[in-house]
Simulated scan of single mutants.
Amino acid sequence: MRSSPGFRGGQTAANVALNAFDVAGYAATRNQVLPEEARGASRLSPYIRHGLLSLKQVWNAAAGPVSDVSKFRDELLWQEYGRHLYARVGMQLHRNLRFDVAWSGDFTPAAWPREMACVNWALSNLETEGWLVNQTRMWLASHYTVRSGAGWMAAQEHFHRHLLDGSRAANLLGWQWTVGAGTGKPYGFARWQVEKRAPQLCAACPLNRNCPIENFPSNTVPRPVAIPNPLLVRDDDLATTRGPTTVTERSTPQCVLLTVESLGDEDPALLAHPQLPVVFIFDEPALEKLRLSSKRLVFFVETLQDLAERREVIVHLGDPRQITPDLDAAITWAPVPSFEKYARTAAEMHPWPWLAEPHAGSLKSFSAWHQKLTQPK
């Protein structure tokens, strides 16, 4: 199996990455693509996605120029917004929420023409390293759908298969935003963006004199969906969206069960039971369906190997619905639909460590969500 050349799984690697991150200059350079040494991106996202670093921990660690800290924390809030949105609407996030943009259809590799240096370079990074700066994610998403007219869901699955930080919340939200399905304003990918963020790619491109993205694509405004999703406006079941707010105990736990949402040493259930063995289940039915790249699987293995240096770790391969009833496990609740398969037979449930508590107000946009978040209670 092949690992990522740029990332190693595990709490030790996550701590090293967080301690090495310097937020100074982040606001000006977070979107820089090449040269790599000029990038301001934190490269913390794989560790945040799998709970090796919590959003609150990273938020508190950010220290430096006010403008850079503010911009960095704003990006963390986008992550939290995606989690709130996914926790509320669940699997409905797999379809267009507000505007009618093509989402279905088979994966169409031709929508990412490899003869374009910018596209080929970005795809190569996705498929070998399993990580992309946000700018190149938008380039690929925009070219696939806005320019090529292909449905975004299949390409989103390709991202999810390879990205070490691939989460349904962040990935689906990012694609909907880029193709205009969430805002009605598609992101237009054009040559000037490559020349600004990665001029080396244009200079070496065989299509340099006949660039297919010389200008912005035609600005087509998506139509609103016929029936807006009422969950975007109000949550009438906030308790379910938010999850438990206190520890609930059904019986005495015999182990701690970790999920891919929360693999860090500061997992609440793990902290509460420092003497218990730790269990992780490689979800065989899900793996057969998702066909994750070896990079993602190796990242999980590396994380478990690192944890095994401090705790007893037991690994299962199979269906969690069949394995969990016999575990009597303590577990941390997670804001994803798939958590249901772990929850029913848990001996003890711990609350999710939100950066910001979910509210029942509008999630139609990040600004609407954030405005409600900051209103006095």
Rank of each mutant, 00 (worst) to 15 (best):
M116N: 07
E261Q: 11
E340S: 13
V66M: 05
M349Q: 11
A286I: 09
A110C: 08
L258C: 08
T245Y: 08
I314R: 09
V298P: 04
Q92P: 04
G318I: 11
V133N: 01
K71A: 12
T345Q: 14
A190V: 07
A347G: 13
S367A: 12
W192A: 08
F280I: 05
A63L: 12
E261L: 05
N15W: 10
V298D: 05
L263Q: 01
G64Q: 09
A286K: 13
L271K: 12
V313H: 01
N96Y: 01
F299K: 01
P46I: 04
Q32H: 08
L270P: 00
S262D: 12
Y144E: 02
E129G: 00
F7W: 06
P253K: 02
F300C: 02
L263E: 03
V101S: 04
W333D: 00
T29E: 10
R311M: 09
K196S: 09
H273V: 09
T220F: 09
H143I: 12
R168L: 10
A110P: 05
L238D: 06
V33D: 03
G10K: 03
T332G: 09
F7M: 06
A61I: 07
L164V: 03
Q92T: 08
N120D: 15
A360E: 14
W352T: 01
R83A: 04
M1K: 14
V133T: 08
L263V: 04
D326T: 13
H143E: 11
F189L: 12
R30Q: 15
T374D: 06
I227C: 10
S42C: 15
L52H: 03
E288M: 10
W59T: 06
S365N: 08
S294M: 03
M153R: 14
G9H: 01
H94M: 03
T245E: 13
K372R: 11
T245C: 09
A198G: 06
A28T: 13
T240Y: 10
F366I: 00
V233I: 14
R98V: 01
S148F: 08
H84I: 09
P320C: 10
A17H: 05
P253V: 00
H143Q: 15
N60G: 04
L257D: 03
G25Q: 10
V279N: 02
Q200R: 15
F299H: 04
R311W: 10
N96E: 08
A181R: 05
S70L: 14
E195W: 05
F216W: 07
L34P: 02
L34F: 05
L85V: 13
D237L: 08
I213W: 08
L44A: 06
P206R: 15
Q32N: 13
N60H: 09
A61Y: 04
K372H: 14
A20G: 09
L263G: 02
G25W: 06
L172W: 02
Q254V: 09
S42Y: 00
